[in-house]
Design a protein around this nucleic acid. Sequence first.
DNA 1: TGGGATTTGTTCGTATGTATT
DNA 2: GAATACATACGAACAAATCCC
Lengths: 228, 228
Amino acid sequence: MKQKTNGALPYLKLREAIIEQALAPGMKLPEDVIGAHFGVSRTLARAALVKLHGEGLVDIRPKRSATVAHPSIEEARDVFAVRRALEQQVVPLVVARWSKQVEAELKAHVAQEAAAVAKDNPISIRLAGEFHIKLAEKSGNSMLLRYITELVSRSSLILALYGRPHSSECAVNEHMELIRALGKGDPEHAIALMNHHLGAVEERALLRGDENEQLGLEDILKQRFPRR
Amino acid sequence: MKQKTNGALPYLKLREAIIEQALAPGMKLPEDVIGAHFGVSRTLARAALVKLHGEGLVDIRPKRSATVAHPSIEEARDVFAVRRALEQQVVPLVVARWSKQVEAELKAHVAQEAAAVAKDNPISIRLAGEFHIKLAEKSGNSMLLRYITELVSRSSLILALYGRPHSSECAVNEHMELIRALGKGDPEHAIALMNHHLGAVEERALLRGDENEQLGLEDILKQRFPRR
DNA sequence: TGGGATTTGTTCGTATGTATT
DNA sequence: GAATACATACGAACAAATCCC
């Protein structure tokens, strides 16, 4: 029996599309188009947009179409600063609850990541983030899971805006190293690795090369002179 | 000139009412009642409820009335654990941006708190939380502000559910101490004070005495055997 | 600058599912 | 267990604001 009430469906699908960068920042998201696409009414399409707005993935201004969010560089730095603080909290909690099963699950996930990167599949962006979400799950703290999930989503958006293309290759190796450190039960070392990893992710996301021409002029103007 | 579009009004008012504990956890919040009360359509009432759901203040289940959220004890512990982690991050940032103006603003706020506590005004609950939000503002990190705002809201809800009545007296003194430590520019001491303060708040919230009879039987049953 | 197209905000009627008696 | 009351979900239709050319 399939679920009848698919009210949450547009929310999940939209979120996925934004994170996988199928929907570019700034793109318009009219309620009726969303609703028609997912086979639900405007009521639920709107609910999905409001919820995504709450997570910072969608901008909503009265009497205007919702758009995919367009975080500033300052916001991007703030996101990574808080990510570092929270993911540090995760490490000792995961170490304390470590098990063969957890280890196997994380390793299987990284294998998926590697496969996606090899095939140059856009879901690799999502998978790289979901590794951190899986870690947060293992912490057993529901608030850590909640906020890290949101921060990871925002990071994907930031990567779409400011990041180099194909910047997730190195992440796979760093994730494997992290698993090894966690398995050895050494929180200090694991925390250091986590910080280094997040620093690398931030660098890849923010210190882009001179490939700025990949963005249209309009996008660059918008990110430098936001219309308020 | 006052703002014309009051779409955000029900959200703000509802949030205030929940935080000040005028709306008890578990209370039903039908869309049309909300809309009628604030003079807006169900559309905006619904938007407010979805947004509050995103912040964890409201429970929404399909085809049922939204209700004021009803956090579990485990969630409560998670909230305070993350609060400690994030508010520690705030301290050095505020120290770095300290100024006479900041000091004056914070002291004025604490004065308001003291006045409300003296008059036994229910807004004292909200003011005590807003002190922490003001601190987060001064950090200059938008994500810290965002999450701490949410965590403070949830703390108020937790206090409503599990806390002793009149548990905000001591907070005023602790806030004053914190301001002094921040003004002396000693992050270490200020962090220690912050941790101690949050520990005290958590204790007041979770380690309630034997005044459980203040809650109705139904509430206690609900919090022990949630209906899912 | 202007005007048509687009899209939200709103209301109403109906249907459907849930809770209560 | 059935009937009733309740509240959301949906669709259509309309006005008002905004966008785009």
